[in-house]
Design a protein around this nucleic acid. Structure first.
Length: 422
RNA sequence: GUGGGCGUAGCUCAGCUGGCAGAGCACCAGGUUGUGGUCCUGGGUGUCGUGGGUUCAAGUCCCAUCGCUCACCCCA
């Protein structure tokens, strides 16, 4: 091997890539039914957008961005997340001056410079959905429902929804201070003490038992929520219950991007190991102002498609695990002269909506039939000298071996009638 | 960024205290005229991740490097 993909790049090749397509389609379908429009936006942005949007105290900005100067000297960063860029695009194209909320979804690669491990890559794929321009708690619940329904459509059952509220600009600073005072009294290593000063909420997320143990009596945001935030949170909880979406209150749940406030949530999958978060999101009222826009509340979520694929693989067994989108009909041309006729036939079949493939190269009849068998097709179609002379094709039912000659012009109709009942 | 495990065929892997690169599956070609699956026969398809070093001799030992993997950290 002379070249390899750069470290940590997640790639999907057939047949496994079908699972990535399926995952993306499940989310896209759920989003479309909820009337979210498709947005295709920049894969790279001005570095400053992420510094100001995601936040200087976040690990993502401090040590995980792919940043570089382009040939024109512009400071560029490959997107480490979607929200900041999506909001920037919405503002740039003035979508927020029309009907609110602006509801959009997008999907594609995201980049973070981290040490790769199971479910964590440097180039990975997310589905992202945002609802911008309303504080209505119903839209908080809607985003959660869109994600929930996508997981359900994929057959994922081992999914848990964790829900929390991080307060807003009025009540969070009070809580932050109370938490900081509590944390300063603990026995922590130097790095964690630094985090206490920089981003104390993140300490709550620490998984190490020696830290965890000391956090039992830590103050929780829930006790500090202001009246408005408490009412908003109760409304969201009530609506989720009404939708039949089970959730777990997670007062310690904190997300790593600085812009989150109020509703914050995460979807965990039980079978994934250390990187168990398959999706997460929350409200980001104030982010628009942070990046130079007008006051514009928003909420959204992102789901990691790589982890969705892992989750599917961990839950599906047997035949269900095999994605099938193979040929329905497989052409076997006999002799070089028959290749043009066969290509014409399979093209006609495809235009009629049939998934058709054919044997290429100099395979013999036996090799061609073997290829037909392995393609999973229900029918093989043979064209040789005899058929060409008579304007016929020979159909072979690969399940029972029955053969029948059919006029070329009637081939598509003949097959459609039979494939429909398969 | 920290610590552990691992890189041999398309895939899963074997290869002992250094001695001519292997197995299963997959793949390809045959098993007399134009028919797949089961069966039989034949075929190895390889930069032993890469670069150095030790040695008469390195897949095997040493160093470096790249990548994979698991956990921490972080998050999707």
């Amino acid at each position: 091997m002379t070249f390899q993909a750069p470290k940590g790049v997640s790639e999907y090749v057939p047949p496994r890539s079908a699972l990535l397509e399926e995952a993306r389609e499940a989310f896209a379908g759920s989003a479309r039914r909820a009337c979210y429009g498709y947005l295709e936006t920049a894969v790279f942005e001005d570095t400053a957008l992420f510094v100001r949007g995601v936040g200087e105290s976040s690990d993502v900005v401090r040590k995980e961005m792919y940043s570089f100067a382009d040939r024109g000297g512009r400071e560029i960063t490959l997107r480490p997340e979607f929200t900041a860029g999506v909001l920037r695009s919405v503002l740039e194209h003035n979508l927020h001056k029309g009907a609110l909320p602006v509801k959009v979804w997008t999907s594609g690669p995201v980049f973070r410079y981290e040490r790769p491990q199971s479910g964590r890559y440097r180039q990975f794929y997310q589905f992202d959905l945002e609802a911008i321009g309303t504080q209505d708690p119903a839209v908080d619940a809607e985003t959660i429902a869109v994600a929930w329904d996508a997981y359900a459509a994929l057959g994922l059952r081992q999914v848990t929804l964790l829900l929390n509220s991080l307060g807003d600009r009025a009540c969070r600073p009070v809580y932050r201070q109370a938490l900081q005072e509590f944390l300063r009294g603990l026995d922590l290593d130097a790095e964690t003490r630094q985090r206490v000063e920089l981003n104390p909420l993140r300490v709550l997320d620490d998984k190490r038992p020696e830290v965890r143990g000391q956090l039992a009596d830590a103050p929780v945001m829930m006790d500090y929520l202001c009246k408005d935030c408490a009412a908003h949170h109760e409304a969201v909880r009530g609506m989720l219950a009404g939708l039949g979406i089970p959730f777990t209150d997670a007062p310690r749940l904190v997300r790593g991007l600085d812009y989150y406030n109020r509703t914050t949530y995460e979807f965990d999958h039980a079978l994934l190991g250390a990187q168990s978060g398959i999706g997460g999101g929350g409200r980001y009222d104030g982010l628009s102002e942070d990046i130079g826009g007008p006051p514009l509340p928003g909420i959204g979520f992102a789901s990691g498609l790589d982890r969705i694929v892992l989750a599917i693989e961990s839950e599906r067994t047997g035949a269900a695990a095999q994605p099938a989108a193979g040929a329905q009909v497989f052409g076997v041309p006999l002799g070089e002269e028959a290749h043009a006729d066969m290509l014409a036939l399979v093209t006609a079949l495809r235009r009629a909506g049939i998934r058709a493939d054919m044997a290429f190269g100099s395979r013999g009849l036996k090799g061609g039939m073997r290829a037909a068998d392995r393609s999973g097709a229900a029918f093989a179609v043979l064209i040789g000298a005899e058929e060409r002379r008579n304007g016929l094709v020979r159909m072979k039912d690969l399940k029972n071996g029955d053969q029948q000659d059919v006029a070329v012009a009637q081939a598509a109709g003949w097959l459609i009638g039979r494939l429909g009942t398969q």
